[in-house]
Design a protein around this nucleic acid. Structure first.
Lengths: 187, 187
DNA sequence: CTGATTTTGTGATTTTTGACGCAGGTATCG
DNA sequence: CGATACCTGCGTCAAAAATCACAAAATCAG
């Protein structure tokens, strides 16, 4: 909880009043390895802040898991499309290990936005950061060849290689497991 | 201007007071075909709302233009990374034809956010929409093969094919111009 | 209107990547 | 602890896409 508090403060300092309002949206919960935080087909009602552990967002394609994002400590995870449109989610989020999260309920958060301009400002800033990150990730697919995408990942997010298996990284990079294995051994 | 007003109202209705504040951020301007709205290397200070015409965001890669986004009427265009971090932009935005835009100055917009909770709420909602769109676009690179990406574009954004040349679409889809031409003629 | 530039279509060829199979190693879980 | 599932590396082969080259068509600018 302290981690979340200091993360929020780094984005947008909140008054005591706003902090109290925001806190009322929080529920802490621990997921076991392999448990689903969001299940495909269901409507996503929450944003998850990872306190400890990690999880991944993935699509099920012919029985294969195509990973679209990895989330570690001090990061948010949600299905933004399902959350905002309230349509069934086309992907799932799964704990990669025993993972403790703070759950922010959507409806409570919307009420908090209405009740506090500061909290809405915080939400706006977080979305700017997420949009920037997502945009850069998209660009890597247009500007870089598969091998370069891997090299770029090694250079900019070496931690991912430590915490996620090659098999799981492959689909995240849009590369087959075998090709990724070859790129790696060729270095 | 009426288009912008009704677009804003569809996202978040504003009080007269908020509308007046927001309007003070607006400047209307027309760009000639080929003119740059944002230039690589410079710091992006604005968000552009396309009133009439179209433009594209692109990176310069060894003299080739790699297109990362296309923007048409009633859509926003900006470089979100440069805008929010105030670092030099690594890409440019160019008018594809004679294009009229409403320019929202960054500093004025930030002031408007502070002055009006409603406007900040509008900003938050727009960012949710943009993040959703960008996330779906990224997923198309992980879930679909090149040929399928083209088919998907035809099915979901047939207008793009009408308004943008194959050559320009190719880099947007992360496909060579020749392959895209073949995919298209095979239909 | 017309020359110049850009865009597009197509073939031939090469390169890259994917798919499959299999073996050895490692982590996981009851 | 032991069975099982998972991860990784490698070889072969096939498929897909990129590259190169060139001609035709369309568009643009003066």
């Amino acid at each position: 909880m302290e981690a979340l508090k200091s993360y929020i403060r780094s984005i947008k300092p909140l008054s005591d009043n706003s902090w109290n309002i925001l806190q009322s949206c929080f529920t802490e919960r621990t997921f076991k390895k392999g448990e689903l935080l969001v299940k495909e087909g269901q409507i996503c009602q929450s944003i998850f802040f990872i306190v400890e552990g990690s999880c991944k967002s993935f699509h099920n394609l012919d029985g294969k898991e195509i990973n679209t994002a990895f989330h570690f400590e001090n990061d948010f995870a949600t299905n933004i499309q399902s959350l905002t449109s309230q349509q069934p989610s086309t992907s799932s989020i799964k704990a990669l290990e025993k993972t403790t999260v703070v759950i922010l309920n959507k409806n409570k958060l919307l009420a908090a936005y209405s009740a506090s301009h500061e909290i809405e400002s915080f939400g706006r800033k977080v979305l700017e950061l997420l949009l920037t990150r997502q945009t850069l990730h998209t660009e890597s697919f247009k500007l870089l060849a598969p091998k370069q995408r891997f090299e770029h990942l090694v250079a900019t997010q070496p931690d991912l290689l430590q915490r996620v298996s090659l098999t799981q990284l492959a689909s995240y990079l849009g590369i087959s497991r075998e090709s990724l294995s070859r790129f790696r051994s060729a270095r």
